[in-house]
Amino acid sequence: MIIKMIGVSFIVSASGWLGLYKASQLSHRTKVIRQLRMDLEFLEKEIGFSRNPLEQALSRTAGVSCEPNKGLFTKACRELRSEPSTTAREAWSKGVAHLSKSGALTDEDLNIISLIGERMGTSDVSDQVRMLRQAGTEMKIQEEKSLRREGSEKKLWSYGGFLLGLMISILLI
């Protein structure tokens, strides 16, 4: 009986923890997207207003950002510093690869962020600002989607994990 009790509590807590983790991931994604939108706005000012060279603009953006987005800007900046003929597209794409390792964002989010690198640093100020604003708008849509998903799925995952654990335990007993 005691072994059964230990087994049930193990299954319920493991499955419950998994559910809570998934629920926290949902709200984490929203936070990361929101932070990224702010970072892109900062980068837009660095480029559009201060006209700082890209390397400096990325470094300064990394300075005001926080993880995991900070890693995106830091990595891209380091790549640009490593070899003068590295293109902004290559550097940004390595930054995005670094960001994807955090697992905070979906493929859809990462695709939007990757697109920024296509024209980064290669056109005049108005085009760069337009491109960053466009990315910001698309990230805003992603943030709203993420919020909606969070609203509908957070509770499901939070309680669902424990309930699923209980069901499995009942079936096994």
Partner: peptide, 12 residues
């Protein structure tokens, strides 16, 4: 990219 420092926008 190298001569412009990837910053064509800063070289108007």
């Amino acid at each position: 990219a190298a001569v412009s420092g990837n910053s064509v926008y800063a070289l108007e």
